[in-house]
Design a protein around this nucleic acid. Structure first.
Lengths: 201, 201
DNA sequence: CAACATAAATTTACATCGTAAACAATCATC
DNA sequence: GATGATTGTTTACGATGTAAATTTATGTTG
């Protein structure tokens, strides 16, 4: 049933496809999902998705970009709560952990070394930049509040590294069975606060 | 040219295959390597590898186990240098970074979320345990030397998380272009030393 | 030593995947 | 209403992982 498509229709189909892909990824794992399945989930014939995306990589990139956007939105929402900068940082950290544990497949898609399809796909690039920006904003707030001093971007990346490392080890099942991830996160938090000389209000 | 194979021959072939796989992985990336290529690299017909490994996953697991073993050996060698515990920790951290940057494909294979083929393959499990053990030994040494107090395993996992997080972000190209990875590592080290109250000699 | 059994390796074959190319069906425009 | 473009489908192809059949070479036995 072909019709003339407005660009809104195109966007709508793309969005539906991304959503279906995300759902299937979460259910069956990323590489278990095939183009044919995806088309079937949308009720179209196997080749139809190719009218809206160049290839599978392009779909992956779009789903990744959407995941980064959702991720950034969560962090921004957590930091929007009124509180002193240190507490807002804690909230953001909690939101980070919540996201990764609630949507491990999305987190994996975002941070796996699977494909270096980064450079292409400017939409994806933008989503990453936005998410990364969030990582340093809260540090700048603490610095401005006099709770901390130093290079905000560098310190932001340190927070990020600690969170990312703990979560990746947890998600990949690399933590020792005796390790309680929550305790590890508490220790990490306390250690960073002390180590960076953050003034606790 | 079939012959009766001793179990040493079998092991030798497996080792050759793993080595070839590792080389090809490093060259062309992991998922770009095909069973047929692998067989060709060994000068055998495409199906021969299946006489020595159940399937491709089994080969992946064997290469992963070998990578973990090499990794653990490097860390252990770095810590075997005579020095006070804190310096041995630093050496181990440097060895960790060196390994990941020198063999990014191996590091990726070890820590990607690609397949949860962990549970099967006891050989792999053992290699991981050995590598993980290394991560806490140096902390125990510092505690015994009175340079630090706390839960050695938990603190070991904190060190591990920070290193792993920084390296993964670097290897996946997620660090901001303005970030110097070496500076980030320096900040991380200083922050952990201060935050954990490590007594510097 | 000749015939055979068995283990090793190869060849053939197949299902599945991503996707290119050919085709069909619908609508906008003249 | 004929025509050309746009959307969707069908068909087809090469590549991949691997199962099954087949060949080849060795060690064993009468």
């Amino acid at each position: 049933m072909p019709r003339v498509l407005s660009s809104e229709d195109v966007e709508a189909f793309r969005a539906r496809l991304c959503e279906a892909a995300q759902t299937l990824f979460a259910e069956r794992g990323i590489e278990a999902v095939t183009m044919r399945e995806l088309a079937q989930a949308l009720g179209v014939s196997p080749m139809t998705p190719y009218r809206y995306f160049k290839d599978k990589d392009a779909i992956l990139a779009a789903v990744r970009a959407a995941a980064f956007a959702r991720f950034a939105a969560r962090l921004e929402a957590a930091m929007a709560q009124p509180a002193d900068p240190l507490h807002r940082s804690r909230n953001a950290g909690q939101a980070y952990v919540d996201f990764a544990l609630a949507e491990p497949q999305a987190y994996r898609l975002m941070f796996d070394l699977s494909q270096p399809t980064e450079g292409d796909y400017p939409e994806l690039q933008g989503a990453i930049v936005r998410a990364r920006r969030t990582m340093t904003v809260h540090v700048e707030a603490m610095i401005q509040a006099g709770q901390l001093e130093g290079d905000a971007e560098l310190i932001g990346h340190l927070f990020w590294s600690v969170l990312h490392g703990m979560l990746m080890l947890q998600l990949t099942g690399k933590l020792a069975p005796t390790i309680d991830p929550a305790k590890l996160r508490t220790l990490a938090s306390q250690t960073l606060v002390r180590g960076l000389g953050i003034v606790t209000p």
